[in-house]
């Protein structure tokens, strides 16, 4: 940029306060109890001091998740802020854990905390699932019926992650996922 000197005594405030969650599957406890809040932050500097000292997603154990949600929204479908919503789903191939996973997850976080989406009010949070069969990243929005907003977020996501136009990503409505009985069509939107 230009020759702007930074005043490091002032932290840069974020539009929203965000909470990082960690999920680890302990069968002796309920699913909800296995979701643990790690920390919340509302400045750029506090975000980095958290991010710089936690493990990157690619080094987590299989079966675990990180979730980053606006403070007050729990990373689950049942939360009032999520129950009418859905998620843009990015399914990664196994080999992408080494190539793309950490870059995608960080770029998604930067989109969230930097309010990169025009319709960022619609964004609830994002989840990364570390799984043997292939990792997944979801960007959760609060109202699946707001098609224009959902599509804007999906398009911006693809652009920011440099996902090729040959690859299509889909948006799943949480309610459909919950009610899923067979292999009926999965995605309500795709970009």
């Amino acid at each position: 940029n230009e020759n702007v000197s930074m005043d490091y005594s002032i932290k840069h405030p974020l539009q929203n306060c965000w909470t990082l969650w960690y999920f680890e599957n302990d069968r002796n406890q309920s699913w909800e109890k296995n979701q643990r809040e790690i920390a919340s932050f509302d400045t750029v500097e506090d975000f980095w001091s958290l991010y710089n000292h936690i493990k990157p997603a690619s080094e987590l154990k299989q079966g675990t998740d990180y979730s980053l949600f606006k403070k007050g929204i729990r990373p689950m479908w049942e939360d009032a802020a999520n129950k009418k919503g859905g998620r843009w789903l990015i399914s990664l191939e196994k080999k992408q854990r080494t190539n793309d996973l950490d870059r995608y997850w960080l770029d998604i976080i930067l989109c969230l905390i930097g309010e990169a989406f025009e319709n960022s009010d619609e964004v609830c949070g994002a989840v990364v699932n570390i799984r043997y069969k292939g990792d997944k990243i979801g960007v959760w929005t609060g109202d699946a019926s707001k098609g224009a907003a959902v599509l804007e977020i999906g398009r911006k996501l693809k652009e920011r992650l440099h996902i090729s136009n040959r690859i299509t990503i889909g948006y799943e409505v949480h309610k459909d996922t919950m009610d899923k009985t067979g292999s009926s069509s999965k995605y309500s939107y795709s970009v």
């Binding site: 974020l14 539009q15 980095w48 770029d107 930097g114 920011r160």
Partner: peptide, 18 residues
């Protein structure tokens, strides 16, 4: 009010600020 928006590079540049 105005939304506080940060560019990706701006955020990355603050990663190792003191």
């Amino acid at each position: 009010g105005t939304k506080i928006v940060y560019e990706r590079n701006f955020l990355l540049n603050l990663r190792n600020s003191p």
